[in-house]
């Protein structure tokens, strides 16, 4: 499917989606609570068949926390980026997509570790790289560690 068709398809699945046309990919912004159902529809719908999660990244925006899902279809070779944000920085919660793409397990653990976004329904949400008793989430912009980070 071309980006145009994808755009229509996504809007037909969830009309509230904000779609921005990026350089390569469509970026579909949806609220956190709608993300899982849209992703599920996109994966299971026969003409989209997004069955492969390429990348899952968290971003710390000045006001909110965002999660990007780059998904592609191995059948049609079209890709799309889903984006969701949560304004709650202390208890940021997004639904886990583990049940759709198992590769999300480690990606989500990584995002949880470094950005502190909790993924509900994740089977084993704990820190990935850092110690379990580590305080803070290093990829947040307000994180500071005078011992290990030297500011220039």
């Amino acid at each position: 499917m071309t980006n145009e068709q994808l755009k229509e398809k996504v809007l037909s699945l969830y009309s509230g989606a904000q779609i921005a046309e990026g350089k390569q990919l469509l970026t579909v912004t949806v609220p956190a609570e709608e993300l899982y159902s849209l992703a599920k529809k996109l994966k299971e719908s026969d003409d989209t068949a997004f069955d492969y999660l390429m990348c899952l990244s968290g971003v710390d925006y000045p006001t909110n926390l965002g999660v990007f899902y780059h998904i592609t279809s191995t059948k049609y070779n079209h890709s799309i980026a889903l984006k969701t944000t949560t304004a709650d920085r202390v208890n940021a919660e997004v639904d886990s997509v583990y049940s759709l793409w198992k590769s999300a397990e480690y990606h989500e653990r990584e995002v949880y570790d470094l950005l502190g976004i909790k993924f509900t329904n994740h089977p084993d949400l704990r820190r990935m790289f850092l110690d379990d008793d580590w305080v803070g989430h290093p990829l947040r912009k307000d994180y500071s560690d005078p011992l290990n980070i030297i500011e220039r």
Partner: peptide, 24 residues
């Protein structure tokens, strides 16, 4: 995956490591 805010530094850089995903 690079998020840019127009500055000379990237706002956020994410590398999707093939190893980490393969390990899962």
């Amino acid at each position: 995956f690079i998020v840019s805010d127009g500055n000379k530094n990237p706002y956020r850089v994410k590398f999707r490591s093939p190893n980490l995903v393969n390990l899962s």
